[in-house]
Amino acid sequence: MLLKRVVLTVGIVVAAGLPTAGTAVAGQESAAGRITVTDYSSGSPALVTLDPASGGVIRTLAQNAQEGVLSPKGSTVAFVQRDDTCIPQPEGCAYARNLVLAGSDGSDRRVLVPGIAPEANEAPYVALPDWSPDGKRIVYSSPRGMEWIRTDGTGQEVLTPAGGAGTFSPDGKTIAFVRTSTYETPDGWESGRDVWIMDVATREVRQVSTARDASSGPVDWSPDGQRIAYVTDNGLATVDVATGATTQLQNNWTTYLTGVQGPVFSPDGTRIAFSAVNTVDYTRSTYVAGATDGSDPQVLTSQGSTPTDWLEE
Score class of each variant (00 low, 15 high):
4 K>Q: 10
6 V>G: 03
11 G>I: 02
12 I>W: 04
13 V>M: 13
17 G>E: 09
21 A>K: 08
22 G>Y: 05
23 T>K: 12
32 A>T: 15
35 I>M: 11
38 T>P: 00
40 Y>H: 14
43 G>A: 12
43 G>I: 11
55 G>E: 00
57 V>S: 02
59 R>F: 01
64 N>A: 12
71 S>W: 07
78 A>C: 08
78 A>W: 03
79 F>P: 02
80 V>N: 11
81 Q>H: 10
93 C>V: 06
97 R>G: 02
103 G>L: 06
104 S>V: 11
108 D>R: 14
108 D>N: 15
111 V>H: 11
112 L>R: 06
118 P>V: 09
121 N>E: 14
126 V>H: 07
131 W>H: 04
134 D>T: 05
134 D>C: 05
139 V>G: 06
157 E>L: 10
158 V>H: 00
159 L>S: 01
160 T>V: 07
163 G>V: 02
165 A>S: 14
166 G>W: 02
171 D>T: 04
175 I>L: 01
177 F>R: 01
180 T>H: 02
189 W>Y: 13
199 D>R: 07
206 R>A: 15
212 R>I: 06
213 D>C: 00
215 S>W: 03
223 P>H: 13
226 Q>I: 03
236 L>V: 03
243 T>Q: 11
246 T>R: 00
251 N>Y: 06
254 T>I: 01
260 V>G: 02
264 V>A: 12
275 S>W: 01
281 D>E: 14
289 A>D: 07
289 A>H: 08
293 D>G: 08
295 S>W: 01
302 S>H: 08
311 L>W: 05
312 E>F: 06
